[in-house]
Design a protein around this nucleic acid. Structure first.
Lengths: 203, 203
DNA sequence: TCCCGTTTCTGAACAGCGTTCAATAAGCTT
DNA sequence: AAGCTTATTGAACGCTGTTCAGAAACGGGA
């Protein structure tokens, strides 16, 4: 029996999250089972349920770490003030992350939680922090009071990048063509933001 | 024991697909289990494996039906010759379908097949037929010989619509705001196609 | 040092999953 | 009616998430 003095509560929770992350990166999220995580950390399956409500809860916490990673990646794309160039830099940084951590990205965005599991507020808050990065670079395209316009554009770009990543990681884009996800992202950002600029120029 | 004269091979396969579809529409794709489908059609679980290679195979066939439905929906959006208006009509028809059949759409695009299951060619062919609809309405925006340009634009729009649908059906967009998927699709199409037009005007 | 209350961990158990396959039943042909 | 072919069965295997009574380990006081 693993003795509880081996790790403090928090150490064990971190250990579990780390092994879960490793497991997903190595074998995809279908390998993330209670028994395999338990084996990896050297505790019994039941112990996991003393630290996480259920597997969905564990997944959410792994995903929180992934969001941290992603946010760090996006922080490397420093805004220049040109919305089109900055949005493109964010999009390319995003796909740099997807390419480096495809399976963590899958767990973050493709894993469907069970019916009983809602995303906690602290989690959606972290997503909003990432969206705020995009909002900042797009803001110059809109009138200062038009926050709804910025929000809409951010959501369109965010969802669209997500779609490109989704089809790319599931192999459903390569089936149709070998064109890379990053190239599609470039086309999306260049022309969508171009369309926004054109609309603003006319209005 | 169900007697084999109750249904011909094809009747039984159709019966299975119909009940599987009903099950998904009613309870989501997590309810699509071999035992429940078997119970619904009045046969034993093992019988399913005489008609389908495995559950993934069954899912692919249900999805083929869904693609049929979707294609029929999109056929209702008759092209007028104006790329922007026609692409928008296709996108709105697409989300009309997503709203009417969210769970079939989930099974089609969010269900991940197992490692051993590749999408059959007849299936990807049907998807390409749908993409061809979008290609036809976008073609006027490009030089006649620029098929690569059309292809890229089609894939960008297809993947982006997918992303909007994905975040919408998983509830990850409503969390941030109540703005509807269709409104985001409208913004995407209007400004992306607008950007394409602007780029063509300059080039 | 011993005891006791508290916390933590265990591992067997339960219900469900996809899938396989020997045995069985049903239908067709002669 | 007998034989042959095909379809169906349902038990079985190894997996899954999750629960919980019992056991083990710890911390504090006597």
């Amino acid at each position: 029996m693993a003795r509880r003095s081996d790790h403090t509560r928090e150490q064990l929770a971190e250990l579990v999250l780390g092994e879960a992350q490793r497991l997903v990166e190595a074998e995809g999220f279908k390998a993330l089972t209670a028994r395999r995580v338990a084996e990896a950390v050297g505790y019994s399956p039941g112990t996991l349920y003393n630290h996480f409500k259920n597997l969905d809860d564990l997944v959410v916490h792994v995903n929180a770490r992934t969001l941290e990673l992603l946010d760090g990646e996006l922080a490397g794309a420093a805004p220049t003030g040109d919305p089109q160039a900055d949005a493109l830099a964010l999009a390319l940084a995003y796909f740099g992350f997807v390419e480096r951590h495809p399976r963590l990205w899958e767990l973050l965005f493709e894993y469907r939680l069970g019916e009983g599991s809602e995303l906690p507020r602290w989690f959606t808050g972290r997503i909003e922090a990432i969206l705020a990065r995009m909002a900042r670079v797009l803001a110059p395209l809109f009138a200062p009071e038009d926050t709804a316009g910025v929000e809409e554009a951010v959501q369109v770009l965010w969802a669209s990048l997500h779609g490109i990543g989704s089809l790319a990681t599931s192999g459903k884009l390569e089936v149709v063509t070998a064109r890379s996800a990053a190239q599609l992202a470039r086309s999306l950002v260049v022309h969508y933001v171009g369309g926004l600029k054109a609309a603003r120029g006319e209005g």
